[in-house]
Design a protein around this nucleic acid. Sequence first.
RNA 1: GCGAUCGUAGCUCAGUUGGUUAGAGCGCCGGUUUGUGGUACCGGAGGUCGGGGGUUCGAGACCCCUCGAUCGCCCCA
Length: 418
Amino acid sequence: MSKTPQAIRGTQDIFGPDAEAFAFVVETFERVRKLYRFRRVEMPVFEKTEVFSRAIGETTDVVSKEMYSFEDRGGDSLTLRPEFTAGIARAYLSNGWQQHAPLKVATHGPLFRYERPQKGRYRQFHQIDAEIIGAAEPQADVDLLAMADQLLKELGIEGVTLHLNTLGDGDSREAWRAALVEHFRAVKDELSEDSQERLEKNPLRILDSKDRRDIAFVADTPKIDQFLSDDAWAFFDAVTSGLDAAGVKWKRAESLVRGLDYYRHTAFEFIPDEGSEAASKLGSQSTILGGGRYDGLMESLGGAPTPAVGWAAGIERLAMLVGEKGEGRPEVGVISENRAHDDAAMQFASALRHAGYSVELGATGNPKKRFDKMRRFDPVGLVVLKDGAVSYRSEATGRLSQDSIRSAVDHLVFELEN
RNA sequence: GCGAUCGUAGCUCAGUUGGUUAGAGCGCCGGUUUGUGGUACCGGAGGUCGGGGGUUCGAGACCCCUCGAUCGCCCCA
């Protein structure tokens, strides 16, 4: 291109209908989180690198190859947040938020991950996020999932199902992992190259491999259910019965695992149903909302053992599913027919706006084309100022009936004349 | 990090096997017409064909490198 600067790879400038869809997601989230009494928090966009490396796990892809890390002028290693949970955990510990436990918090904002951009995947992307910290009871998981479910409903998103699994407590998870490694090691040479590598680093991931060579061996793997302790079973049962009580539909997904090391017990993802419209809109980036319980995270940051559960959802992915969101018609258009009335038009527009009407003003540019331009905005009511008269007309719809705009205009004319 | 496709006005695109001053629609600006709800016509601005190098008498078309986008893999939201 020329010398004009280009946007950084994987970043986006969001405008028009896309921006409206984005805003709709955030506004709906704000409304719903208040219904569930989640408190708003604002978090720093960057943290010391160790916050993420210790919390998320050194061997995860996110930490080992996707972080935007840099040294600041004081020589500290800092990192642009690749997720919310670690930073919120850090804040919980460093601000003594234990006093508020169980603490329900929600936030949203940009996250950064150095990945190859793709549909629904960006280097700077945005999430909404909800966490309950300091609650060990399965009811917290239910509360959190009920909010997620209601949010998706209020966004009008259909054809998406809650996939639910349990990873058990730390011991269950380790025993299962060991059994899986043993199972797959026996057939290692027949696995895909990716899975041979996963065998060492992240054996749970082999379970949702898409490679045909792997799928044959996934069917008869040891199941987490065989390794769950009585307590873990009781916990999972309480979660599922709570979901049923709350009217949240769910589906058991035995091979669902999460990529980050800190998850325990409940793990879940909302995924579009196969063949649904939502699935085709999202391409291969199918998870729109995911999370789980992370009881071990606080300890990895040096805090006291603290149970917690949370989820995050990609705003861009949700925005792709909410459909076209127009920018809306102005309630009133105000046009001056020639430049002599521009000030009066401005006065009308200002008065109407203060009265709570959204107003598009046509008092700039070529007077002869102001009608043409105003037409495109398609205002519900139209006020025209021309020599010796003020005319008005309006569709009879909602509060902007023929009468209401007439009385508003009459009122304005009266005020402006006196 | 790996693989594939693509990159021509602000936008959507056309540019025949490489061949004069690179085109259209929409949008934008100006004019005439119309005149209280998507008029019609006329004119104009705007592109070193993503960038760099190469092949050739000649490159928007071919080759190499690079940047970016898209779609998979991987990973994840």
